[in-house]
Design a protein around this nucleic acid. Structure first.
Lengths: 207, 207, 207, 207
DNA sequence: GATGAATGAGTTTTCATTCAT
DNA sequence: AATGAATGAAAACTCATTCAT
């Protein structure tokens, strides 16, 4: 069984970006810290970036295309972080723990990233065709992979539906972070992650 | 311990709405089945309702205000359904099962409602001040209440953090329904609910 | 030479107004203390009056018609005040003094009246056909009358153009009151009136 | 004692305006000759200017903002005219005569300008914060300055209140022009100015 | 690599006014 | 004498996007 994330490297050709392009992406990132995407205007982006509106369309197909590009960049470094962390572990539950903790920490440490992913992009149908969503699929596939491994190795109960389990994991993490994104409330990411794992792994029912 | 939902009744004095108002709300509900809120125009609403655009602003402060009002109505009947269903049960886990199943069935059977709640409104800050969100809070409070009761009665392990558990429940449900909302895929709600409960109650770790 | 204001009485049939009508006029008066006419809506008037928008059109042809009616009422009592005051005086300059003082005091003591007259109505061509403007003409005619009398009696220099003199008087008074209307600043009406008369009667040039 | 109008020059750096901006301002000026500001629509302005409505909002914050800008331009050239004319004179009464005559001639020769100033803008509170009103204040300050100089030099009686005198001047001029603005009646500006000066300088009282 | 000028379609919103009851 | 429901026409403003230079 191969880790879906090993495909990653080939996806990242990395030509040096022209300065204007970088400024624009940074500007959107900055603005997303304060406002939601919809109330950010191209004029606003241009002003923040110190360039003209026209230039945005030199580097990006679209306002949304720009968003996806920003998201992709964030997601790439996010995935890289996860990839490195789970290499060390060998039990599948330990790997899931790592993924959960890393994900929550990423969301918490990068509110823009979380906001885009959890609130902004899901509305638009074309998001699901963009490069960033491709990375999300890799991420999700990785989780499923680990679950299946866990069941194969007898670490995870086989009467658990792996897809539903994945959904529970994803949902739990997202919801845990929603408060941060929406209200700016702070949480102890390590603690919350552990509490989630406690519930998911051992269940809540007293024996 | 009182059920937070008992406050509900007093909130609903319901003066007879004028016909135009009703038409407008129905029109929006209808339109939301086809398009997302943002691409629905007041002109479209008026046309669908068979009234004039101006009338919308007689009865609602805003296009958004209208949305919140529609949402509130949906949520009210949704809450009422839950309230009745959980009355019959006495164990707290059984109650949670009921809530999970009813919620998922509601989301699935009422994609409009789900789409609004999961995707549309969270973006706007003023949603969190609207009446509909008030009901969401009641709903969330009810879940927390049940969890605490479960711990008090020894049905739920006391080393489980009740707030995190609630988040896991909410997240799991939402994520389970996201596929339906986003891609229109169908699921067996009863089965999915049971699988979720299986995971949350007993955990995934093989003993 | 007749005083043009003696025509006044016949203009005022004074049927007892129905309560709704009175409420509406009071409401507009109240609102004019805070906002300018243009930003006052019929909805706002109805709300303030505690009646429904429809009723306004039972008693007044128009939103503007209502304004003119309010103005007329104010103007009638204003004219009555002047009429009484000037009776006592016999020199024409004394009469002009009285008119100036009374007018300024009226403006100052009734900002709504001043606001309507100096700012609101002049914009609309149909104002010059309304009953209130008829009263304004009476008022202006009275001033001219007095000036002519003054010249006939040798009290006012005959090389003074009576029409221009009237304009100077009207303009001086209006401008003196504009500050009050626009900025809400207070002034000593008696003193200002005297200063104006001092200038108009004796001139500014040092001899 | 410095002339307040000398500040003027530094206020006018005048970067070359883009053609669209110029067209828009010209268009409004043209339209104001026929209609009052309130019944001029942005659509009308755009049509007249041969540009699109949107462009108006690129260059001006607002429809009102545009009006104030137009007003400012008119006022600037008006002030410049006065400035030059009064340089030649040395007696303060002569200077006031010049100002009165130039002002009345300006109003009469430029009904748009007069209409805006005397009728349109005074209603809106934000006018008093705009650049155009700043120029009005300079103009008013200039008049006061001259009066004070006149008193210092013994040309104007010191028992005349300078502020009230200024108000009388301003009011007299405005009222004299009101007829033109409101009814389109023509007057002999030179003659009227002289008559006003006659009254203000020598008084009306026969000696 | 970047600018500046301009577009144009669309959208919400505002309000005076009417009329049946 | 008054209400409540509804109208309709216009009007201001927004913004992503294009393109010549």
């Amino acid at each position: 069984m191969r880790n879906p994330m090993t495909t990653l490297k080939s996806n990242t050709p990395k030509k040096r970006s022209p300065p204007g392009r970088i400024k624009i992406m940074k500007a959107l990132t900055t603005l997303l810290k304060k406002k939601d995407f919809h109330s950010i205007t191209t004029a606003g982006i241009a002003a923040q970036a110190g360039i003209t509106e026209g230039l945005i369309y030199k580097y990006f197909t679209d306002k949304k295309g720009l968003l996806y590009e920003v998201l992709k960049e964030h997601f790439e470094s996010f995935l890289k972080g996860i990839e490195q962390n789970i290499k060390a572990e060998d039990s599948s539950l330990a790997r899931l723990s790592i993924i959960i903790e890393t994900t929550i920490a990423s969301y918490a440490g990068n509110r823009v990233f979380a906001r885009i992913l959890l609130l902004e992009v899901r509305n638009s149908p074309d998001y699901f065709n963009c490069a960033a969503y491709g990375l999300v699929k890799i991420y999700a596939a990785t989780i499923l992979e680990i679950i299946l491994q866990g069941q194969a190795l007898g670490e995870i109960n086989t009467d658990v539906d792996p897809h539903v389990f994945r959904q529970v994991i994803l949902g739990a993490m997202e919801h845990a972070c929603l408060g941060e994104v929406l209200f700016g409330s702070r949480m102890n990411t390590k603690q919350v992650s552990e509490k989630i794992c406690r519930i998911l792994f051992k269940g809540v029912q007293s024996s």
